[in-house]
Each structure stands twice: as structure tokens, then as C-alpha cells.
Amino acid sequence: MKLTKKDVLHVAKLAKLSLSPSEISTFEKQLSDVVSYVSELSEVDTRDVEPTSQTTGLTNVFREDSEEGESLSTEKALSGTEKIHNNYFVVPQVITKEK
């Protein structure tokens, strides 16, 4: 299994990572190595085997639908950033005006 430069760029875009040209070529090789290695799983017979996504055996854990417990104060919730406006987080612009 070999990843191409195009694959690496596509995945980087999905993951919102900007890679340098040297990272792109390093990852091309390293990710290909790892993906080739893990492809050995194709030899395991998994017909009729249920997939495991978690091991607790629990399903749908609920709590009472009530106002309870403590929550963070506005001040605490905003304490991680200086980019605040009227007690809101300031986010980068994602919609551009049509010209």
C-alpha cells in the first residue's frame, strides 16, 4: 500500500493541518510504511465477527434531565483566551462576502 503526495495533501486538508514540503515527503513514506504494515489484518478471517467499539458493555448511560451540579462561570470559561468580545469567543471569519 503506497500513499501518493496527492493522498497526503488531501488528508492534511481534511485534518486542517498545513504541512511543509519536507513533511509532505516524509509522511508520504512513513504513512505508507505504517499502512502497509497494518494491512496484514486482511489475512484474519472476520466473517460474522461483530466489531468492538468499546469494552464496557454499557449502552446509553443517562442522567436525570434536571438542572444539577456546578458549571463553569463565564469568567472561567473564557479564561483560556484573550480574544473575547462582549463575553463571547471571537472566531475567525468563515464566510466571505460575495464580490
Binding site: V35, L41, T46, V49, E50, T52
Partner: peptide, 12 residues
């Protein structure tokens, strides 16, 4: 091919 397969082998 990868994720689902891995979850099945996890069961094994």
C-alpha cells in the same frame, strides 16, 4: 478496509 476490520479483529 481499515477501521471496521480493526474493530472486528479487536473482538477476536
Amino acid at each position: 478496509a481499515y477501521y471496521l476490520k480493526a474493530m472486528q479483529v479487536r473482538s477476536k
